[in-house]
Design a protein around this nucleic acid. Sequence first.
DNA 1: TGCCAGTAGTTGTTCCTGCAACGACCATGC
DNA 2: GCATGGTCGTTGCAGGAACAACTACTGGCA
Lengths: 151, 151
Amino acid sequence: MPRRPDPERLAAWRLLLEAHAAVVDRLGRELEAECGLPLTWYDVLLQLSSAPEGRLRMRDLARAVLLSRSGLTRLVDRMETAGMVCREAHPSDGRGANAVLTPAGRAALRRAAPVHLRGIDAHFARHLSDADAAALGDALSRVVAAERDPA
Amino acid sequence: MPRRPDPERLAAWRLLLEAHAAVVDRLGRELEAECGLPLTWYDVLLQLSSAPEGRLRMRDLARAVLLSRSGLTRLVDRMETAGMVCREAHPSDGRGANAVLTPAGRAALRRAAPVHLRGIDAHFARHLSDADAAALGDALSRVVAAERDPA
DNA sequence: TGCCAGTAGTTGTTCCTGCAACGACCATGC
DNA sequence: GCATGGTCGTTGCAGGAACAACTACTGGCA
């Protein structure tokens, strides 16, 4: 017989869906309004800036920003047109390409980060007690890990 | 000065994004593969079935499934073509329309529900302790409530 | 009664995404 | 050397979503 989640956990799942939708929507709008920057662009800039030398292989960047390879190709196209990233051939793998953060991209991230972090605090973090944050981190990291390793 | 979330809460936010993406993607694929039903369709069927008489105003349904009004119009178009819902004029408000669950829609939901619930258990609920579930529900309901009431 | 701001649902348009397919390239086998 | 299977990034294509404009209707007010 199929295992079903109990009502408490089912409600938790539903709440996760609602909270995600509400907060992502809000953060996206705020970032767009105050910095003219889509959330996906911010994510790319952030991932690149926290990578060594501000560059990342397309494949790895796609994984980091939770996008398909083709999706990332178009996204980097747009951001390259906007001058925030550029491409370079991979030094050792002839198939590969790196996306590289440009100074303009770094500047955009510096402008956007305070806005986004303030939003995360106001719309999410502020409502979590220390215990909540710990439990959430614990539980969700197990969920993510289980999905990564189809053990 | 702008308030910034501490690293622990920031990590929790990031994990929520990753868990949401991973689990929604997985659940959607499983439902599509085993029942030929997109996740959004399931959500519509579920909301309708839990409404009195299996009918809901378009506006309310749109809110319930976290979609824009225009998005819901097209979605109901597709589902109506598939015979799972139908529209009827609202009895008292000449502007309004109700989406109504058909027998076929009810049957599809009955087939899909076990699959989906099993998935929620396997990919999400199973990884939560009782305390985790309680903390998650508590915290996320506060987040959602705060977003609903711009207090 | 007639007017009119507000709301409901639909439609046109545009944007973004994933899938499938493709050429280029790597790596391992013979 | 060179075939072969696999990976990387890109592209054609189709589907789904949001925004804004539009029509139809409501409800309050003079």
